[in-house]
């Protein structure tokens, strides 16, 4: 893989399962992704991070959000809706990563303007390939919007 030309980009992972967070982190390491991974465990914390509130006052603006749909308290879909209706946040690509293949969830996520929907692969090696492809696509292939002020 060619070296990314963008420099390190921050990725926000919204995931309540410590195992799934570990798997994503491990997949990023294996894919030699240079980007920094920030991990929050629920939807409220995700919105605090994105809005630089509370403990996250110094948080960077992520270039990509990996969002699990199955979150405690505020659901992933609600978080998605809030991000996509906030003028400051709506341009950040949101990748919905979930275990579900239920067509209603896929449909609901796209209706709330998810940038893509990915069913987490069962095999770790497939997950690593998926993360590698995601990072290549979002940070090397596509042109992202300029960061909002």
């Amino acid at each position: 893989m060619t070296l990314p030309i963008h420099g390190a980009v921050d990725i926000l992972l919204v995931e309540d399962s410590p195992t799934d967070a570990l798997i994503t982190r491990e997949a990023l390491t294996q894919a030699r992704v240079l980007n920094r991974l920030h991990h929050v465990e629920d939807g409220y914390e995700a919105l605090e991070f994105l809005r630089r509130q509370g403990a996250h006052a110094e948080a960077p603006r992520p270039g990509l959000i990996l969002l699990d749909l199955n979150l405690p308290k505020k659901s992933g879909l609600d978080v998605l809706t809030e991000i996509k209706s906030d003028p400051n946040l709506q341009t950040i690509p949101v990748v919905v990563l979930t275990t579900s293949r239920a067509t209603v969830e896929v449909d609901a996520a796209y209706r709330q303007h998810a940038n893509c929907f990915i069913t987490k692969p069962v095999e770790f090696e497939d997950m690593a390939r998926c993360i590698c492809a995601l990072e290549n696509f979002w940070f090397s292939i596509v042109t992202l919007p300029p960061p909002a002020k």
Binding site: T19, D20, L22, N70, V122, E123, F124
Partner: peptide
Amino acid sequence: SHDLDGSVRGVKSL
């Protein structure tokens, strides 16, 4: 499909 499936997948990946 959400909870049990996710947990089983976690065991496999770990």
